[in-house]
């Protein structure tokens, strides 16, 4: 029933602003750390090991919280907003780079806009208000809930997006052979599935116990990137 909704939300063409974010790849390319397919492979493994567990776990935890609200009419609004706020603050504390906090919130805001229009729901209004928008994983978790997806599907979309964003940017920035890039993504599919499953498995934990993997260069190069006069991608 909702398989098409799952594919819609996972699709890179879903208009949620992702096309303008390289998730650090533009900075890595400029620094000469990624120049070819092998470099991209290393980069994506790093993103999958470090960024994806956090993103997917917060997406899954938000989804679970939202889905529980939806299925339990007796739950009051504060039952859900407290976990959402707690998820927001815990993710904020895991995102040490101001540039990455802004990138996450901007992408969250864009996703929220797309989600509200695609799968209208009252859930969106329960996300904590912030002038730059909600963090992307929170927006994704709520959108996935509004679309009727499962926690596992929400986590899978999150982990998949961590890979496909920079992969797509690499095709544009480095002119890599798109077939080879797709082949690389296909080879990483098993690892991606494992990360997603692990994230869904911790979704019930308290927000402070969720993964907090840090990748120093992700933070450092995001800040360097934000100082550039001329850049093609927002992050």
């Amino acid at each position: 029933m909702h398989r098409t909704a799952y594919l819609l939300l996972a699709d890179g063409r879903f208009p949620s602003g992702g096309h303008a974010h390289s998730s650090g790849l533009e900075a890595a390319v400029a620094a000469g750390r990624v120049t070819d397919l092998a470099g991209l492979e290393q980069f994506l493994h790093g993103r999958l090991s470090y960024a994806a567990p956090v993103t997917a776990a917060f997406t899954a935890a938000t989804h679970l919280s939202a889905a529980r609200t939806g299925s339990a009419p007796s739950a009051t609004e504060s039952d859900v907003t407290v976990p959402f706020l707690s998820l927001d603050r815990e993710l904020e504390a895991r995102t040490v780079s101001p540039a990455l906090r802004l990138a996450s919130r901007r992408q969250g805001r864009a996703l929220l806009r797309a989600g509200r229009n695609t799968w209208p729901s009252e859930l969106y209004g329960q996300l904590p208000k912030h002038p730059d928008g909600p963090h992307q994983p929170l927006a994704l978790g709520v959108t996935a809930a509004a679309a009727g997806l499962s926690t596992e599907e929400a986590a899978q979309i999150a982990a998949y997006g961590v890979l496909t964003g920079p992969a797509s940017a690499a095709v544009r920035l480095l002119g890599l052979d798109p077939y080879q890039v797709q082949n690389l993504l296909a080879r990483m599919a098993g690892a991606c599935d494992e990360i997603a499953a692990a994230a869904a498995a911790v979704a019930h934990k308290s927000p402070q116990e969720l993964p907090a993997h840090a990748a120093p260069l992700a933070d450092i190069s995001a800040e360097l990137h934000a100082t550039w006069e001329v850049r093609l991608f927002a992050s």
């Binding site: 063409r13 208009p15 949620s16 096309h19 303008a20 864009a110 940017a169 544009r172 093609l232």
Partner: peptide
């Protein structure tokens, strides 16, 4: 920022 795709930013994904 348009992520190398100015037409995407004005047509396909207008969120930014």
């Amino acid at each position: 920022e348009t992520g190398c795709c100015p037409h995407t930013a004005i047509r396909d994904d207008i969120s930014a």
